[in-house]
């Protein structure tokens, strides 16, 4: 099945957690896993939920990095 992160189609297994998918996406895009946040339907998915959250086919996520510059 596929989900979408920042409009990129990502092939996933049915047992994959959100944490696993995000880590793979970060590795592929040279992003720091510890420094990204994820939203679904314009609502934050808290980091503590990632390890338990099973993904569902066709889900669409926004992923973005923390910014601290000022």
């Amino acid at each position: 099945m596929f989900i979408y992160i920042n409009q990129h189609a990502i092939a996933c297994g049915s047992d994959d957690t959100l944490a696993k998918v995000i880590r793979a996406y970060c590795d592929d895009h040279q992003l720091h896993f510890d420094e990204v946040a994820v939203a679904h339907n314009d609502s934050l998915v808290p980091r503590s939920q990632w390890a338990q959250q099973r993904i569902v086919a066709e889900q669409r996520f926004s992923l973005f990095s923390a910014v601290a510059g000022g």
Binding site: H32, D34, E35, A37, P46, G69, G70
Partner: peptide, 25 residues
């Protein structure tokens, strides 16, 4: 309120990158 704080968004105390000094702006 379905509302959290800054730490809920970014639960980290430092960034490996992402400052104006390292990445420009």
């Amino acid at each position: 309120y379905n509302a959290g704080c800054y730490h809920c968004l970014y639960p980290i105390t430092e960034l490996a990158a992402g400052s104006c000094q390292t990445d420009g702006v």
